[in-house]
Design a protein around this nucleic acid. Sequence first.
RNA 1: CGGGGCAUAGCGCAGCCUGGUAGCGCACCUGCUUUGGGAGCAGGUGGUCGCAGGUUCAAAUCCUGCUGCCCCGACCA
Length: 424
Amino acid sequence: MKASHLILGTQRENPSDAEIISHQLMIKAGLIRQVSSGIYNWLPIGKKVLQKVEDIIRKEMNEAGAQEILMPMVQPASLWESSGRIDQYGKELLVFEDRHENRFCLGPTHEEIITDLCKNLLTSYKQLPVTLYQIQTKFRDEIRPRFGVMRSREFLMKDAYSFDLDKTGLDRSYQVMKEAYIKVFNKIGLDYRIVKADSGTIGGSDSEEFHVLADSGEDLLAFSDKSTYATNAELLTELQDGQDPSTLEGKESPDGKGILKLKRGIEVGHIFKLGKKYSEILNLKIQSEDKEINPEMGCYGIGASRIVAAAIEQNHDDKGIIWPESLAPFEVAIVEVNPKNKREISDKCAEIYDLMKKNEIDVLWDNREKRPGVKFNDAEVIGIPLTIIIGDRTLESKEIEIKGRQDEKPKLVSHQDLLANIID
RNA sequence: CGGGGCAUAGCGCAGCCUGGUAGCGCACCUGCUUUGGGAGCAGGUGGUCGCAGGUUCAAAUCCUGCUGCCCCGACCA
């Protein structure tokens, strides 16, 4: 991609109404623009990053045997009346009428729809176990949207639903999804913890949350420095009679391994064992060998758009975003310095650009007629991991300057070693 | 929903107190000179001053109502 053809949307100044760093940087780097409170446009760079999150999730879901479907964003309110959640969800559920005066709502989640779908789709126990998922826009009419796409009203979510004959099956399906989630977050490359959670309004028994560690997180987590033990600190203090969570720091971990540390977390994933709650209420029955049963259900969510913000919260500096390689909108930037009257520099950029494309490296060639500082600053705020600098200094030599996003100074590599340096 | 703040060009802001028909920086367009960390000069484009009433010869400015956005709290995934 040549920068001259890219709608970049970078801004020099911070927007006055963005509070947290990820929100500021997403606007400065041209990832998003606000439309209304809690509702955003995703610009080309932002969409590319979001797409990468989606692709990683999609791949691991498919790998785990889940099947992708797409359910509607608009749902009949009658289904929510049937499940009884129309009152429970309250005003967060955006309800409206169509021209025939039938009531609909924008889907904040899809337990009702999937259960209803499966009433027609799943007829025999031989089809079980099965897990279906979608990656789709959700709408929750938050009381107070804030922090950009971190707590927005409209957001992109992957939600999966499993159906099993019995509790043992549900345990197995849940475990498969949990392992897929671990692979997703490892692959994205964020520092995260899995914590025991309160299953809240969605209902059901077991539930665990995946949290990306970041100072701006809305939840306080307590976890062991030696084991995988981790919990929401507020749940832990409840057990210990309302004491200040900060007093837990340094105490022995409840599992006896290591001591407790406290950090804030951003919830990016949540997995539940729903049990028969929805299959009973909505009357989903499947024929087993000898009788009809209500299947055991699980549901599994990942906030795709929230992951983008969380990744930035965890990885940035005063210059801008520092993407993990898995999410970077481009792998390499070519900064063309001093192109006027220097046909050779443009030619050399073109040569390297072609080399990158041939090797399927996603490259942004900054061929704009801008000062070098503008180009360096744009590459840095966007967070492109590696920059190749082509200018007078190296025009005559056989060497090329490359600079990592966090390097102080560029280093020189020979033309023939260029690819090897980029690929690793 | 309670408390606080803001609304003037794409972004950041001044002007409002004391009414006289809109300005600055950045961005954008044209030209020339520049070019290794957000260039200089010259010229230029772009705004029903959030909306609706009212007061006045005259309203961005004063008055009333409304709307939107942000922050804190309560709520929640």
